[in-house]
């Protein structure tokens, strides 16, 4: 076989392999097995599997549920599917100080495990930022927070 033809056959093969791999990952459902976090509803639906296993739970911190005990370094809050979740909100207990951006209504991903009493015990609390980058002039409450930062 001529080198040129051989090279081009290899090219065809490489492109087919690459395209096939991408197709399988994009549309073949392999991605369904790659789960970074479970939502509260998914945890609720698989409660038996969630207990004892190290998993990540992702959701929105529910308003009015955040308690931070400075002395015990104990943070408790409730995580829901959305900003207001009345169906499957989940109680979370973490033994670490939250990141600075932590607040009510923000997206979080917590790492830990479900306890038998139905409380999620977290070792790590991570805050999710949206793809929105806003100047601090839009909302009034944010502006107020901004002002307090400026005063420091």
């Amino acid at each position: 076989m001529k080198p040129a033809i051989q090279r081009r056959l290899f090219l065809l093969g490489a492109l087919l392999v690459a395209g096939g791999a991408l197709g399988v990952i994009a549309w073949g459902g392999i991605g369904d097995n790659l789960v970074y976090f479970w939502t509260p509803a998914q945890v609720a639906a698989n409660a038996d599997k969630a207990v004892g296993a190290t998993i990540r739970l992702g959701g929105v911190v529910q308003a009015g549920t955040v308690h931070w005990e400075q002395d015990q370094q104990l943070l408790t809050f409730t995580v829901g599917e959305s900003t207001v979740d009345t169906k499957t909100p989940l109680q979370v207990e973490a033994k670490s100080a939250p990141p600075q951006m932590f607040r009510e209504g923000i997206g979080v991903v917590v790492e830990g495990t479900m306890r038998t009493d139905g409380v999620f015990s977290a070792d790590k609390v991570m805050v999710k930022h949206s793809n929105e980058y806003r100047a601090p002039t839009g909302e009034a409450d944010v502006k107020k927070l901004y002002a307090t930062v400026e005063d420091l």
């Binding site: 931070w68 100080a97 939250p98 600075q100 951006m101 932590f102 607040r103 923000i106 944010v142 927070l145 901004y146 307090t148 930062v149 420091l152």
Partner: peptide
């Protein structure tokens, strides 16, 4: 824990 990052 006030929702914004100070310093940084």
């Amino acid at each position: 824990m006030n929702g914004t990052i100070e310093g940084g």
